Computed example of a mutant assay.
Amino acid sequence: MSESMEAKLAQAMAELTAVQEAVARAEGELGQASATIRSRDRAVEVTVGPQGELTALKFPDNKYLNMTGPQLASSVMEAVQEGRSRMARRVIEVFEPLTRAGGGGATGIRGVDIDWDRAFGSALDDPAGGRRRSTARLHDEIHEDTD
């Protein structure tokens, strides 16, 4: 093997090691991460883990006692969706620098293109943005219905 080829291989191995270490740090950082969210009506509080899983569900101040089933369901769905969205954005924030081609020198994974929308789906819906979530629409309909 030529000296040039050996140098390139050594550099590639060093980059691979750096990437593996950066991924391990990111996974460690996210391993215990969570997001705790209250619904807009403050009737429901949820905690969502790093993979979007629901890890806790609370009903502060027993506000749910004065709600109909659909209202409570809407509040739960709203809070869970917002929690999933926050965790998805956090995961992207942590891992995205590792996927930039050539970004960060030895920490960039060349040629990797992650489709974050495909990876997280509806968890990335932004309630303040252009796309409205169906749970937000249901929530609005319940509050506007005065019959």
Rank of each mutant, 00 (worst) to 15 (best):
E96W: 03
S39M: 09
G129S: 10
V112T: 06
E29P: 00
R42V: 09
D145L: 12
P70F: 03
P50Q: 11
F120V: 06
R137M: 10
E78V: 08
L72A: 04
V94N: 03
M87H: 08
Q81A: 13
D125H: 13
V112D: 03
A35M: 03
A14P: 02
N66Y: 09
A128V: 03
S75P: 09
A14T: 00
W116H: 06
G31T: 04
V44A: 07
G83L: 10
A56D: 14
G31A: 15
K58A: 08
S134C: 00
A79P: 05
S4Q: 12
S34Y: 09
A119C: 11
M77C: 11
N66C: 06
D140S: 12
R25W: 00
E93P: 06
Q11T: 05
D117G: 14
V46E: 00
L54G: 02
L138M: 11
I109A: 12
T55Q: 12
N62Y: 05
T55A: 00
A56Y: 00
E15I: 08
A10D: 13
A22M: 05
A123V: 01
R40G: 14
R110K: 14
S122T: 14
E53F: 04
V46D: 00
K8P: 00
A7E: 13
L54Y: 00
L124R: 04
A56P: 02
Q20A: 13
G49S: 06
E93L: 11
R86E: 15
I37E: 06
G28M: 03
S85R: 09
V94S: 02
A10S: 10
P97Y: 07
Q11L: 10
D145S: 14
R90K: 15
V76H: 01
S74F: 01
D125R: 13
A10T: 08
H143D: 11
D125I: 15
R90D: 08
Y64A: 10
G31I: 01
K63W: 06
R38L: 15
E29M: 07
H139A: 15
N66Q: 12
F95D: 04
K58R: 15
R90S: 07
R86K: 15
T99H: 01
G102R: 03
E96C: 01
R38A: 09
E96F: 09
G108P: 02
E78D: 12
R38T: 14
R90G: 04
A43C: 11
R132C: 06
G52P: 04
R84T: 00
T99W: 02
V19E: 08
P50I: 01
V80Q: 05
V80M: 12
T146P: 02
R137C: 00
S74G: 14
M1E: 12
A128F: 03
G52L: 07
A119S: 10
K8Y: 04
G103M: 11
A123W: 15
L9T: 02
